[in-house]
Amino acid sequence: MTFPDALSRRDAIVLAALSAAATAIGPRLAHADAAAVEAEIKKLYADKKLGSGRVKIDVPQIAENGLVVPINVEVESPMTEQDFVKAVHVYADGNPLPGVVSFAFTPACGKAAASSRMRLAQTQNIIAVAEMSDGSLFTSKVEVKVTIGGCGG
């Protein structure tokens, strides 16, 4: 009442449903947390106040593939010589290391927006900090869900 051994012994293939998460995570390594992200921000900006608003993080609400998660950050700014976005730093609080990417903009960009693709080990928050030409800082945070998937619908 069982299938030939050749078939039934193929145990190595773990339920696909598990694989998305498993692949992204790999062997369980220590991961960063909110404190590690804060520490990174402090390294750059000490205890300077972080304002809210102006920074828009665009990520999929659910990641299709933990190894390739698109991220777009856009900061409200006229992008003139007098008033522009100097830098945007992106962090993830559930990866082995908190840093993801830093963008350095110039007024020549015309628009303070950039897209990259990142690896996310698990469901976690993405934090972006924008530094304006006058030295002021703005931040925002968004969660990305990394799911096992499967189960069609």
Partner: peptide, 10 residues
């Protein structure tokens, strides 16, 4: 209905 490539079985 595993979403993994290369899944084996009848």
């Amino acid at each position: 209905a595993s979403i993994n490539e290369g899944t084996q079985g009848p």
